[in-house]
Design a binder for these strands. Structure first.
Lengths: 143, 143
DNA sequence: AAGCAACTGCAAATCTTTCGCAATTAGTGT
DNA sequence: ACACTAATTGCGAAAGATTTGCAGTTGCTT
């Protein structure tokens, strides 16, 4: 892994905790800080939750990770290198569907034209229901 | 006000607190539970914050109010009778721009066609930056 | 007017995220 | 290899938001 250089190049120190947090974000995709901590604990049980929070913030500041708000479940982090995408978040089963940002281009353009609004669809999920949950009206698939 | 019947018709008891919470949500539009409590306290100073939370939940269960996630600032409630609309939430200054749902119809249709996703744009705000914040790159207007 | 379940107020519990501070450690220069 | 300094960590406490248990109150039905 080229992580060592990635982190140093950003002016960050290379600590085991930091490497593991970054690796966890990359592997998990859309993970909550709690989930990242769980993952890191597998190989580094002593890590403190506040260290995870601080590293997520630090890594976000240098642009290596980003967070999104995916609805009820709080904040989630993903690696910046992932293709930029919007998130469709099923409110019933929690499934996240990723949509390439070009598929949203005409919509965001219309918001710019109509409201002068510069949309950042990557940051907040779009709520709704996926096909299968939509078809069982009153029996949501709680995960 | 026809509130009395509205509430009873839903099988709810008519308490001053409940009436005031509903009235506050209707007047405030996009209010946080905290803001609703403030409003109610003007006429009913003794109301407890947990009563506000409980009533918001109850009123949501019977469909009289709904909540949305408008970005970093937490949950906000609005009356169900309001025109359905999407929210554009400026991440710099916090301004909320309301967009009639028809303006989003072709976008949501394309998500349905492409991903089988039934979009509920009213529930989660769309993040971005409003015109004026967009024009001052590194000096966000924190409210 | 009486009874009961719904509702409220209060205090404490949870949950998530942040902060202060002292101890540790990575990266630099010697 | 060794020492130095600032960044980073762990830990405990704090803060903010929301929930819960419980006992007392109150709306609604009879």
């Amino acid at each position: 892994m080229a992580e060592k250089h990635e982190l140093r190049d950003k002016g960050l120190r290379l600590t085991p905790q930091r490497e593991l947090v970054l690796a966890a974000v990359r592997e998990l995709e859309h993970a909550t800080p709690e989930e990242v901590a769980e993952k890191v604990k597998l190989t580094h049980p002593g890590i403190n939750l506040s260290t995870v929070y601080r590293n997520l913030e630090t890594l976000e500041n240098v642009g290596l990770v980003q967070h999104s708000h995916l609805g009820h479940g709080g904040v989630r982090y993903h690696a910046s290198t992932e293709e930029i995408h919007a998130h469709l978040n099923c409110e019933s089963c929690g499934t996240i569907i990723e949509v390439p940002i070009d598929a949203t281009a005409s919509f965001t353009q219309s918001l710019l034209d109509g409201y002068g609004f510069h949309t950042d669809l990557a940051h907040l999920a779009i709520a709704g229901r996926c096909e299968s949950c939509f078809n069982m009206p009153e029996a949501p698939n709680k995960p």
